[in-house]
């Protein structure tokens, strides 16, 4: 039961992160490999403000998201100038830099040792089963996020960002500041990733830089593509499927020493199969 709860929490956390990823990549065409680093900022931000600065959970949570948003805003200036394939590669580079920062900014992140003892939010600690309470909380945030994104995407704001995805020049000729819209999408998408990262930090209570290497960004992107680009339900589907994948591999009896590599190999194969046969993914509405 505990294990099922653990998986469910992970699924919810990653769904939230993939919502952010898909908002940027599927709906707006910003195929970014930054979001693993954004999750890391949410995780380290929460840990740092709560543990080192002694701030409360809600304050730390939102402060971490604010900082992530600011970093995303800054990074968007060079990044958004690039054409799609260069964009992916350079965003990959930024996630490298993110990892290096997590590894080397000793005073904040405690370097390779990482930070431990990250607590759950206060109000769930009083529950009989705090983890269950936490899960319900994350689920609530996920549902609110889904609702918000749906509202945004169904509105004329959504029309504009989809238009920028298809053709920036044409959208500008229609009178919209394409760059501005893409920037705001990129920043908001980073906030979702930050929330997810903060939740992850509390859930596993100890974080270290290795969690937030480029592999995480790749995983998020694969989840988004697999579930379906430009699909909200697809985001959740992709997250759930790839959370269950390692369990399936373990079920197949693979020894734990090779589990990590087999997982990665599966991601690679999934990517190739998707790119070859169905670049829009399972429930997707947009193919790259």
């Amino acid at each position: 039961m505990d294990y099922l709860l653990h998986i469910s929490i992970l699924a919810a956390i990653y769904s939230l992160a993939v919502l952010g990823q898909n908002y940027a990549s599927g709906f707006t065409g910003l195929v970014s490999l930054n979001h693993g680093a954004f999750m890391g900022m949410g995780a380290y931000g929460l840990a740092y403000f709560m543990k080192t600065q002694g701030l409360s959970y809600p304050v730390s949570f939102f402060l971490a998201a604010l900082i992530t948003a600011i970093v995303a805003w800054i990074v968007s200036f060079p990044l958004l100038k690039l054409k799609d394939d260069a964009f992916v590669l350079v965003s990959f580079g930024f996630s490298f830099i993110g990892y290096n920062v997590f590894l080397n900014w000793q005073s904040v992140t405690n370097g390779a040792i990482g930070l431990k003892g990250i607590a759950l939010p206060e109000f769930v600690k009083t529950w009989e089963n705090p983890k269950l309470g936490f899960f319900i909380f994350i689920l609530a945030v996920l549902l609110v996020s889904l609702w918000s994104l749906k509202k945004i995407l169904d509105s004329s704001y959504g029309v504009i960002i989809r238009a920028t995805r298809e053709n920036q020049r044409v959208t500008q000729v229609s009178g919209h500041d394409a760059d501005g819209y893409r920037r705001s999408v990129f920043v908001l998408s980073s906030v979702f990733a930050s929330f997810a990262g903060s939740f992850l930090a509390s859930h596993i209570s100890a974080i270290d830089p290795l969690l937030f290497q480029y592999h995480l960004s790749v995983l998020l992107l694969v989840m988004a593509i697999l579930g379906g680009l430009a699909s909200l339900r697809g985001s959740v589907l992709g997250a759930v499927l790839l959370i269950l994948l390692p369990e399936a591999l373990r079920f197949l009896g693979l020894p734990s020493s090779v589990l990590a590599q087999c997982q990665q190999i599966s991601y690679g194969m999934i990517l190739i199969l998707l790119m070859y046969w169905r670049p829009k993914g399972l429930l997707g509405e947009y193919s790259i």
Partner: peptide, 20 residues
């Protein structure tokens, strides 16, 4: 396939070969 799609596929190949 568009250059972006091929690049992503090449990335998948990279992951596979690296982990092998």
């Amino acid at each position: 396939s568009s250059p972006l799609v091929i690049m992503v596929a090449s990335f998948g190949l990279l992951i596979i070969l690296q982990n092998f």
